[in-house]
Nucleic acid binder design. Structure first.
Lengths: 186, 186
DNA sequence: ATCCGCATGTAACCCGTTACATGATTCT
DNA sequence: AGAATCATGTAACGGGTTACATGCGGAT
């Protein structure tokens, strides 16, 4: 049942719960406080997603927090199951697809953040190297699109933007690799 | 009826049709050939979207355009209506919302490309300046998030990535402003 | 006694994806 | 004739947004 793979959003929720047990409201606050969190999930997205994860057996509500006798504490704190932990580790190890690296860049960054303390340094470095390769390929591919139509400046400028941004990402991966490999050998 | 505003996808389709009348298939090819087109719209998204634009009276199907003889009845070539043109111009002039500038950056770039030959140079420059201001504010805001927890390197590195990418976008806007203002005064 | 923040949830609506279906035109 | 391409479309499905509903708990 439910063989369909998780959505990015579900993967992120699972990852956050793996980092520390949390309720839906906790997760909302995490999204609000995080600098990357220009995305604020709505209740209608968050709670159903948590229920889906629970239905799959990837997370479970801690005892005493779901529904008590008459007090009915309305606070469900989720913690990962073993299956959930395994699924999360597997997600972290998902290879970088070069073709979709640009589209999924934000997601890869999320994965990178969540890798800390869960993957060994060499695997993290391999991931960053894969990401760097994918970005380098993308930059090389964009460079092929040299627009020469002089009556159309904006497309050429937009292409420049894409190049500049992806080059910046590529440079970052190199800095990150340098910083982390220096730290791991220290 | 249908007071709901257009989706970004619909706006882009309308913009492409304003640039030149096109069929659904034409639009597909445009997406495929464009360098930014790592996104390939599916038939299930494209054709219903065109029908929605038609229902709103923003575009209309040309009568019997096509190839030789009586053929081509299986091809709907859309052209913009006056209302559609106006809606597109209005979209191009939509102000840049600083809070969502990062999320909508790709869309703003699409708008920038479509502004060419439709907006006067000074409006384009104002748009770029607004975008630059929004990006500068975003960069300044991200700089506040200096992470000091030394046991957590990855979040700090991810923040660096965001800073690097947005700084690159900001630098690009400055270059674009310089290039276009030089051209307009020449 | 009441207001506000905590906390979870539900229902309508919309749109995109996937996958499939269908007919017309062109090529070999 | 048969195959590939052109060209449009539909149905099932899933998930996110918006908006609303609900109840508990502490603060004034």
């Amino acid at each position: 049942m439910a063989d369909r793979q998780l959505t990015p959003f579900e993967h992120i929720l699972l990852g956050l719960i793996c980092r520390a047990p949390a309720s839906g409201y906790d997760l909302k606050r995490i999204f609000a406080a995080t600098p990357m969190g220009l995305y604020q999930p709505s209740s209608g997205a968050l709670y159903p997603a948590l229920r889906r994860l629970e239905l799959r057996g990837l997370v479970q509500a801690q005892a005493g927090t779901g529904r008590a006798g008459q007090a009915a504490r309305h606070r469900r704190v989720y913690e990962p199951t073993d299956t959930g932990q395994a699924a999360h580790m597997s997600w972290l190890r998902t290879p970088v697809e070069p073709v979709t690296a640009a589209r999924d860049l934000g997601l890869h960054l999320m994965r990178f953040v969540m890798m800390e303390h869960l993957l060994p340094p060499d695997e993290v470095l391999m991931f960053l190297q894969d990401l760097a390769d994918a970005l380098a390929a993308l930059v090389a591919q964009l460079e092929q699109f040299a627009v020469v139509d002089l009556t159309e400046r904006h497309p050429s400028l937009a292409l420049d933007h894409g190049l500049a941004v992806h080059r910046a990402s590529l440079q970052w991966t190199k800095r990150a690799i340098a910083a982390l490999s220096a730290a791991s050998t220290a």
